[in-house]
Each structure stands twice: as C-alpha cells, then as structure tokens.
Amino acid sequence: MSEVKLLFAGPMGAGKTTAIRAISEVEPIATEVANTDLVESAKLETTVAMDYGQLTLDNGDTLRLYGSPGQRRFDFMWRLLADGALGIVVLLDNSRADPLADLEHFVVAFAPMIAAGRVVIAPGRLETHPSPSLDDYLARLDALGHFVPVVPADVRRRDDVLRVLDVLFEQIELAEETESVDGDGDEWLRFVQQARAT
C-alpha cells in the first residue's frame, strides 16, 4: 500500500476546505481562525496553515488531501505543501472581483507543476456568476503559454470534486506515459489508474 499527496489550492473562499470535506472519509483537520482580512474575503473564518483529509482507494492506497491557505501573505505555505504532491487542484471563485487575476497568480505560483502536467483548474460559482466563462479561463491560460484543463465544480458536491480529480488523474497518467524515464513511472501509472477506478 502506498500514500500519495494531493493539494487543493486557490484564493480565500474558493472552497478548499469544503472540497476536502466533500470527499474525505475522515473528519478533516482544519486550521481555521477568525478572518481579519475582510477586504480579501467576507467569510468569517480562514485557513492559516492547512486543511487535511484522506481518501482510501479500493486497493488500499491512500490519497492524502491537503488544502493550502488562500491568503497571499501565506504563499510561502503553498510551495511547502506542494512539495511532494502528485498533483494540484486550483479552485477559483467566479464571484471574486477578478478571478482571472487569481488564475494568473496561481499559475505563476505552481508553474513547475503545470509544466509537469499535474494541475487542473476548477472554477466555482459559475451558476450565479457566469463571467468569466470557461472559454475566458482557457484563453487566459493560452495567453500565458499553458495548456491546463479547466473543469467547473460545485465543491459542495462530492461527485463534482471526484470529477475534477478524475481529470487530474488523466493529466497525471498522460504525464507519466510521456516522461517515464526514471523507472518509477510504471508504479505511479498503476497508482493513478487505480485512483481513477474508484
């Protein structure tokens, strides 16, 4: 049995804690405190270190689910939490003032993982805030020189979060197939295929 780390990232209020809670089989551990940055977000609490949950696959392997703090002043934590992660889900909130600027910020922060094909972008709240559209996200990513899947998600819904992870696993599988230089590719490929099967 093996353990693999996945990271949920995104700005404050994008739903990282909620997404982990939607799929975790254990009560998530959260480091939430009262939000003192009401300019950034009107939510009452915010994550200051990380969230943590886990999901066991059918073969006994464990996905360790980490959520990063969303405030930019904690961006040093993003790199620490991304270290050793198999992949990253960047959650975005379409109700924020400038979600495309948020996208750019996280694309820069996780550029190495994007280059490795291990990131998926998941905008939320599109039903109440349809702009920017999915095409707008794809156009901005293209302008930045990146091809990254964009999958809409309501992070309160388990099926939506699992669909985002399925797309992430497809990305990782493709990356493993094209890179498999280090000899660990086959083991990772088996893990990703098993994860997709759950």
Rank of each mutant, 00 (worst) to 15 (best):
E3L: 06
E45R: 14
R158P: 02
E173C: 01
A116I: 02
L63K: 04
L144H: 03
P11F: 11
L65C: 03
V33D: 06
M77W: 11
P99M: 04
R156E: 07
T47V: 04
L165V: 04
L80K: 08
P28K: 02
L38W: 06
R140Y: 02
A85N: 03
G117Q: 01
W78Y: 06
M12I: 12
R163S: 15
T178M: 13
G53C: 02
Y52M: 04
E45D: 05
D93T: 04
M50L: 14
E45F: 14
F8M: 09
D159R: 15
E170I: 02
A115Y: 05
P152I: 11
V108M: 10
L141I: 08
L189F: 01
V107G: 08
A195E: 07
E177T: 04
V89S: 10
I121D: 03
L6W: 01
D93P: 09
L162K: 03
A9R: 05
G13I: 09
E25H: 07
A111E: 14
H105E: 10
I114C: 04
S2I: 01
I114L: 13
F169N: 02
T31N: 11
P99I: 05
A109G: 06
T198I: 14
L162F: 08
I121H: 04
N59L: 02
T46K: 15
F8E: 03
S95Y: 06
E176C: 07
G185M: 03
R64W: 11
L63W: 14
K43M: 10
T62S: 08
M50A: 13
E104W: 00
M77Y: 09
V107Q: 06
D182V: 08
M1C: 01
E179A: 14
